[in-house]
Computed example of a mutant assay.
Amino acid sequence: MLNIPRELIFDILSRLQLKDLIRYMCVSRAWHAFIHNQNFMKLHLELSIKTNSTRTILIQSQSDPSYMGSLPFDSDETLGKSKVVHPMPPWKHGGRYTLILGYSIGLLFICNYDLNKDFTLWNPSIQKLKKLPFTTLEPHPSPGLEISRSHITNGFGYDSANDDYKLLGILELANSDDVIVSSQVHVYSLKSHSWKRIQNTPCDGYSFSEDSDSIVFLNGALSWLMSKESDDADKYMIVTLDLASEKCREFPIPVDRINIDISSLDLEVLGDYLCISVNCFWCRSEAWIMKEYGVTESWSLPYSIE
Rank of each mutant, 00 (worst) to 15 (best):
N259Y: 01
A244V: 03
P252F: 02
V239Q: 00
S245N: 14
D242F: 09
I262W: 03
D261L: 08
A244C: 15
N259Q: 06
K247Y: 02
A233R: 14
A244T: 12
D242Q: 09
L243R: 03
I258Q: 05
D242V: 05
I253Y: 11
S263L: 00
P254N: 07
L241C: 12
D261G: 02
V239Y: 01
R249Y: 11
A233Q: 12
D234M: 07
K235E: 15
S264E: 01
V255N: 14
D261N: 09
I260F: 02
K235F: 07
E246K: 09
V255C: 14
R249F: 12
R257H: 14
N259T: 03
L243P: 13
K228V: 01
S230M: 10
D242M: 06
I253A: 06
S264H: 00
A233Y: 14
D231A: 10
F251T: 03
T240H: 03
L241D: 07
S264L: 00
D256T: 06
I260Q: 04
S263Y: 01
K228A: 00
L241F: 14
S263E: 00
I262P: 01
L241K: 09
D234N: 13
Y236L: 06
V255Q: 15
Y236K: 05
M237S: 11
D234L: 04
L243E: 06
R257M: 09
P254D: 07
E229S: 09
I238R: 05
E246C: 11
D261K: 10
